[in-house]
Amino acid sequence: MKRKWVLLKILMCLVFLGFLLIFSQKQFEKREIKNIIAKIDYADGNYFITEKVVKEILGETHRDFPKMAMKSVEINRMEENLKKNPFIKNAEVFLENNGFLHTNIQQEKPIARVNTGKEQFYITQEGKRIPLSQHYSTQVMLVDGPVDSADFALISELVQKINEDNLLKNLIVGTHKNSRNSFILLPADGGYVLDLGNLENVDRKLDNFKVFYREFLAVSDSIPYKRFNLNFINQIVAQK
């Protein structure tokens, strides 16, 4: 008899728990979204994406936005639509039981602005092309000339090496690609240019120039040369 009573209590508990789950589910389905919280990563100082933009994209996902029933929220679809924006690198959407809808947005990080003479666009840290924004412009390295998709990864690598070096990032303001598929660095003072040639062995070329700059250019009152060729392994050729 005692065993039957224990089994009966277990059964009653299971029925009660089932009732609570059904009741909670019914209540969940009746709830509406109370608040939408957009967390956007601005650590890099870029403001391509705003909370307004995020909500506009979410609004395209649900016609009754923002007064959506919690049961109708399509998390995966929201994330997919957010990721279609060229300035969003990654997006995470999740919903809390209290009716708060959260979006975590990671922006793309442009590191160069390209002007081919026919079009302009950004190149990101990963060597990806993204368009210019109508609402925000970021300060990055300027690159001009007949740049094509084969150059993107190499340009990204070059700009990151310059940005990571205290001397170079304060000295170099732009890059030009000429018709010979070689690249020229443009220093801030504009008195001379640095001929890199192709973008192979960039580390060696930049290291050679830094040594040359500290030992000669930095201590010279005037620079009588207009071009420095960095293509050679153990020397830099100066041209007037």
Rank of each mutant, 00 (worst) to 15 (best):
Y42W: 03
K26L: 14
K52S: 12
D44M: 11
I37N: 13
K55W: 07
T50N: 09
Q25S: 10
L20G: 02
E51H: 13
G18I: 02
K39I: 12
F65G: 10
E29K: 11
F23Y: 15
F19L: 05
M68K: 00
K39H: 08
E51L: 08
K39D: 13
Q25T: 06
G45C: 00
E51Y: 10
K34M: 08
E56Q: 05
A38D: 12
Y42N: 08
V15R: 01
L58C: 06
E29P: 05
K55P: 08
E60M: 03
V15F: 09
R63D: 15
I36Q: 02
E32W: 08
N46F: 12
F16T: 14
D44F: 11
V53G: 04
G18Q: 03
E32H: 15
K39V: 11
T50P: 12
C13Y: 04
I37D: 11
L17R: 02
M68H: 03
V15Q: 07
F28V: 05
F28A: 02
K30W: 09
K67D: 15
V15H: 00
Y47N: 09
D44E: 14
F16K: 07
L58F: 03
V53S: 11
N35W: 09
I40R: 02
F48R: 06
H62Q: 08
F65K: 09
N46P: 03
F23C: 11
I49Q: 09
L14Y: 02
S24G: 10
F16V: 13
L58K: 11
A43K: 13
D41Q: 00
N46T: 12
F16Y: 14
E29G: 03
I37R: 13
D41K: 02
F16L: 15
L21C: 07
F48W: 01
D41Y: 03
F19W: 09
G18Y: 06
K55Y: 12
F65R: 07
V15T: 13
F16A: 15
T50A: 07
R63G: 13
I36D: 04
D44G: 04
F65Q: 12
Y42P: 01
L14Q: 06
Q27W: 06
F23A: 14
E29W: 04
F65E: 11
A43N: 12
F28D: 04
K55R: 13
K52A: 10
P66H: 00
E56A: 02
R31I: 06
I36L: 01
F16Q: 10
G18V: 02
I57N: 02
I22W: 04
P66D: 06
K67F: 13
Q27I: 09
E29N: 09
